[in-house]
């Protein structure tokens, strides 16, 4: 019985916080651009695989890709490479990861999402890798 009230209060708080974040945050496409090019493109290039231009996919394709959250054919996730843990692991050698080291995961993910949609083949401003 003693446990019920704190759990209820916690649920109320988490719900409120989650809603506030979702309501308040609008993706910053410029930050998404820097992260996408500075981390995603750089890594793809360094590993010898060809980088994926935002304009290589349509908005629907990017939305579906991000929603599925599968990277490298499902071996891992996209969100993992935007997450703080990953940024921390590469920030010594990657300036974009270092610059955005403290950005909440969901914000940075949203930044990348709006950049990709904007830069998609059928987006407002189709964008290349560089």
């Amino acid at each position: 019985m003693h446990l019920k009230f704190p759990m209820t209060l916690m649920a109320l708080m988490i719900g409120a916080t989650g809603m506030t974040t979702a309501q308040a945050y609008e993706g910053d496409w410029k930050r998404g651009r820097v992260y996408y090019r500075g981390v995603c493109t750089t890594c793809h290039t360094a590993q010898g695989s060809s980088p994926i231009s935002p304009n290589a996919r349509t908005m629907d394709e990017w939305s579906a890709y991000l929603k599925a959250d599968k990277h490298a054919g499902g071996k891992d996730t996209v969100s993992q490479y935007v997450g703080k843990a990953y940024r921390d692991s590469i920030k010594e050698s990657n300036k974009a990861a270092e610059k955005y080291a403290d950005v909440p995961d969901e914000e940075l993910m949203e930044d990348v999402r709006v950049f990709l949609l904007k830069g998609a083949k059928d987006g407002d401003s189709p964008a290349s890798c560089s």
């Binding site: 759990m7 209820t8 649920a11 109320l12 988490i14 719900g15 409120a16 989650g18 809603m19 506030t20």
Partner: peptide, 17 residues
């Protein structure tokens, strides 16, 4: 109760925010 009411409290929390 936990399964039913906890999600409701999440939603209520959001509405009352």
């Amino acid at each position: 109760r936990r399964r039913t009411f906890l999600p409701l409290f999440f939603i209520l929390g959001a509405i009352l925010q």
